[in-house]
Design a protein around this nucleic acid. Structure first.
Ligand code: MN
Ligand code: MN
Ligand code: MN
Ligand code: MN
Lengths: 152, 152
DNA sequence: TACATAAATTAGCCGTGTCTAACTTTGCAA
DNA sequence: TTGCAAAGTTAGACACGGCTAATTTATGTA
């Protein structure tokens, strides 16, 4: 059975996390997943507006690697969330709130990529990993990335 | 409109990613999300078996911060995936494959946490961020984390 | 041994994010 | 000016991973 005896938590170097603390961590990850779609979309929309003057669903779909109906549905969710403004059959634009979110996301994305590059990760891998990692980096960790970067 | 003129890609320092490369990155993130549930479960099950001798759904649920029916459903998915073995109403155990996955996940989790700690991130934040980040760290990036750690 | 309580399961619901097929709208080129 | 191809939307399906309410099973205690 290998049932461990009751032992004093304090005798360990690495404190065991309480079940509650652990659950809290998983809850935060689940929460991050809920914002992920919005973050990736507004970030991409901002990039498209910058590089092409407008963000068209067909381009969003191509770069996200999803089909156009998926974009239509998600854009409409973003509109409901107040992040996006648009008229039917036309290009998509960001609201003030959407722009603010996009700016924050782009900054965070850039920092994560730059940090991975500074570690010697190659460009393609850095970009790919950053696309997922960015959504799980707390302000504190982001600050640590930045600091480590400037101290390089 | 600020429509950008056509310009040579090569004149830029940071190469623009092709839409295909970008789409590939998002596809990899979506794929990672599909393995995430399995990874977190087998990792936790392995920890519970180690520290308590067995992994009971009630404990899995408590530490994951979800309700018992969610655990029942997901455990049954893991069984279908060949990661878990168990009899109804009894504790959960890992198959060979499940143990292998759990070991890989625990190792990756430990490396990510240790790396964040080495950056000066505090323990709670390191654990919380690692819980999400771990699923998006490629072998290459993980190796970079490790290397940077030993060089500390 | 019986039964109360805890643990686990089942049934059925929901929102998210993806898809295909079918349609509407737009806008360009003849 | 009109008609066709491309873009966009709608409708409807599906898997996932959450939930609650109700039921079933296991178990320790009286
Ligand atoms: Mn992303
Ligand atoms: Mn990004
Ligand atoms: Mn995790
Ligand atoms: Mn983990």
């Amino acid at each position: 059975m290998t049932k461990p005896q009751s032992h004093d938590r304090e005798t360990f170097e690495h404190m065991e996390r309480t079940p509650e603390a652990q659950a809290e961590g998983f809850a935060i990850v689940r929460q991050a997943h809920e914002s992920e779609m919005a973050e990736d979309y507004v970030e991409l929309i901002a990039e498209l507006i910058e590089t092409r003057g407008e963000a068209r669903p067909v381009d969003i779909a191509e770069r996200l690697g999803v089909k156009p109906p998926t974009v239509t549905k998600n854009i409409s969710r973003l509109r409901t969330a107040g992040l996006v403004r648009r008229e039917r059959y036309r290009a998509v634009f960001l609201t003030e709130e959407g722009q603010a979110l996009a700016e924050a996301c782009r900054r965070r994305h850039r920092i994560v990529v730059a940090f991975l590059l500074s570690l010697g990760v190659d460009e393609e891998a850095a970009e790919r990993d950053a696309e997922g990692i960015e959504h799980h980096v707390s302000d504190e960790t982001l600050a640590a990335f930045e600091k480590n970067l400037s101290q390089k």
